[in-house]
Amino acid sequence: MAKSAAQSSKSPSQLIDARIEELGDWRGQTLGRLRALIKQAEPKVVEEWKWRGVPVWYHEGMICTGETYKNAVKMTFAKGAALPDPAKLFNASLEGNTRRAIDFHEGEKINEKALKALIRAAMVLNESKAKK
């Protein structure tokens, strides 16, 4: 699927705004909330739009993605296997050596404090790798 002219003229942030609005249900609300938490954890985060419509957040490297599916909003941490997860938020993609993900389902409460700590830990890990 090629990018439309309208998509290519919009910033990644505008495309993410449009996706949230387009979903128009709990998935859009959840993706919007996750996005807000990421920005609270790191106001300087950079938003990108990749792989045919997946929001991606960066700080000194990829932090995470925000994928939407019929029954879940998946937040995949690029280096999740290397992150401490004392609140046991990771519940998907647990078998790999690198990535870890959190699937959010309709009606589930987000542990905002633990999620922001996980996001900050991902940023610290990226910063430590960038300095080497």
Score class of each variant (00 low, 15 high):
Lys3Tyr: 13
Lys3Gln: 12
Ala6Leu: 11
Lys10Arg: 15
Pro12Cys: 09
Ser13Ile: 12
Gln14Glu: 15
Leu15Arg: 15
Asp17Phe: 05
Arg19Tyr: 02
Arg19Asp: 12
Ile20Lys: 08
Ile20Gln: 11
Gly24Asp: 08
Arg27Gln: 06
Gly28Asn: 08
Thr30Cys: 09
Leu31Ile: 07
Gly32Cys: 05
Gly32Arg: 00
Arg33Lys: 15
Arg33Ala: 06
Leu34His: 08
Ala36His: 09
Ile38Trp: 04
Lys44Asp: 14
Lys44Ala: 14
Lys44Leu: 10
Lys44Val: 08
Val45Met: 05
Val46Phe: 07
Trp49Leu: 06
Trp49His: 09
Lys50Phe: 05
Lys50Asp: 07
Trp51Val: 06
Trp51Glu: 08
Arg52Pro: 00
Pro55Glu: 02
Val56Glu: 02
Tyr58Leu: 12
Tyr58Gly: 00
His59Thr: 09
Gly61Trp: 13
Met62Gln: 13
Ile63Cys: 06
Ile63Trp: 09
Cys64Phe: 06
Gly66Cys: 03
Gly66Pro: 07
Glu67Trp: 02
Tyr69Phe: 14
Lys70His: 09
Lys70Thr: 12
Asn71Lys: 13
Ala72Leu: 10
Val73Gly: 10
Lys74Glu: 13
Met75Gln: 14
Ala78Asp: 13
Gly80Asn: 01
Gly80Cys: 04
Pro84Leu: 04
Pro84Gln: 09
Asp85Met: 04
Lys88His: 14
Leu89Cys: 01
Leu89Gly: 01
Phe90Val: 06
Ala92Glu: 06
Glu95Ile: 05
Thr98Arg: 15
Asp103Pro: 04
Asp103Arg: 12
His105Gly: 04
His105Asn: 08
Glu106Ser: 15
Gly107Cys: 03
Lys109Gly: 08
Lys113Ala: 15
Ala114Asp: 01
Leu115Pro: 00
Leu115Val: 09
Ala117Arg: 01
Ala117Thr: 01
Arg120Met: 06
Ala121Ile: 02
Met123Val: 15
Val124Pro: 00
Val124Glu: 13
Ser128Val: 07
Ser128Asp: 11
Lys129Ala: 13
Lys131Tyr: 02
Lys132Ser: 11
